[in-house]
């Protein structure tokens, strides 16, 4: 990583840490004005990560999807992007700063412990499907992280959230949260589905097999099936909202494991460069 890129990466990491710290403080002291500041800090983090990504893309000549470090930073970029989109268009917005700040800070912190040197694009990866496959994987993971962030807010309890809402009238409509979580689960399932489909088309072109039960393929399918199960239990079996929220958080852990944990435990053809 060049020194300029490193500066922007650390600025983004520190911004997410600051955002989380301020959100936690705002939740305790119940000051909505602080949460407004957090939003600006998270937007700044997105900008820092965008510059870092562009610098890396320029340096390597390929989109930053190849190494584990790149996969993690691009996922945080998607998380922040989706957060900004929600902030612009949706009502359930400001309370998201706490879990989004926490998830982004943890992921960037984890990324900072990984080798940051760029890797050349191998012949296998040099395919247009890489960009489709990897973008949808990271965007899908981001959607699931956002869903579990909303679940965390819901599990914090209506009383705590309403006490914040009383201050400004701008905070989330607590009772609308389960619907929003469900939407993000479906959205994530679509993105994750496209990731699996594009991966299988690419695998067929590269190796002549569209499905090989490779550990990452397995865990991606496990995450996808788990979310399908969560969806069926919520829509078809009307499970309680609290259970639904816990399930989305557990399912998000399998997504993170599929993306970044499998390589630590299994030998896989999906090894990062």
């Amino acid at each position: 990583m060049t020194s300029t890129e490193s500066i922007f990466f650390w600025l983004a990491t520190l911004s997410t840490a600051l955002a989380f710290g301020l959100s936690a403080w705002a939740t305790v002291i119940r000051k909505n004005a602080v949460l407004g500041l957090v939003r600006i800090v998270l937007i700044a983090a997105l900008l820092f990560l965008t510059v870092q990504g562009i610098l890396r893309w320029t340096l390597t000549g390929h989109p930053p999807f190849v190494t584990l470090f790149e996969s993690m930073t691009i996922s945080v970029w998607f998380v922040l992007l989706i957060y900004i989109a929600i902030d612009l268009f949706a009502r359930n917005r400001i309370a998201l700063t706490l879990p989004v700040g926490l998830a982004s800070m943890l992921l960037l912190g984890w990324a900072s412990t990984l080798p940051t040197d760029p890797s050349p694009l191998s012949a296998t990866l040099d395919n247009v499907w890489l960009f489709i496959h990897a973008s949808f994987a990271t965007a899908g993971a981001a959607a699931f992280v956002i869903a579990s962030s909303f679940s965390t807010i819901y599990l914090l309890g209506e009383e705590r959230m309403n006490s914040l809402s009383d201050l400004s009238g701008k905070l989330p409509e607590y009772r609308a949260l389960p619907g929003t979580i469900l939407n993000f689960v479906i959205f994530g399932l679509i993105l994750w589905g496209v990731m699996i489909v594009s991966g299988s088309i690419w695998a067929h072109a590269a190796w002549g097999r569209y499905w090989a039960w490779d550990p990452i393929e397995l865990w991606s399918l496990i995450s996808w099936l788990l979310y399908s199960l969560v969806l069926h239990t919520r829509i078809g079996m009307k499970i309680s909202t609290r259970l639904f929220c816990w399930l989305t958080i557990i399912a998000a852990l399998t997504v993170m494991f599929a993306l970044w944990g499998v390589g630590y435990l299994y030998e896989t053809i999906h090894s990062y460069g």
Binding site: L218, T233, M237
Partner: peptide, 24 residues
């Protein structure tokens, strides 16, 4: 029935998780 669907998806999921643990 949705309950049957739940049971079957859960069974499929359990089998796939087993396959991720036990070498195939």
């Amino acid at each position: 029935s949705t309950r049957l669907a739940f049971f079957l998806i859960a069974s499929l999921l359990a089998l796939i998780i087993l396959s991720a643990v036990i070498p195939q």
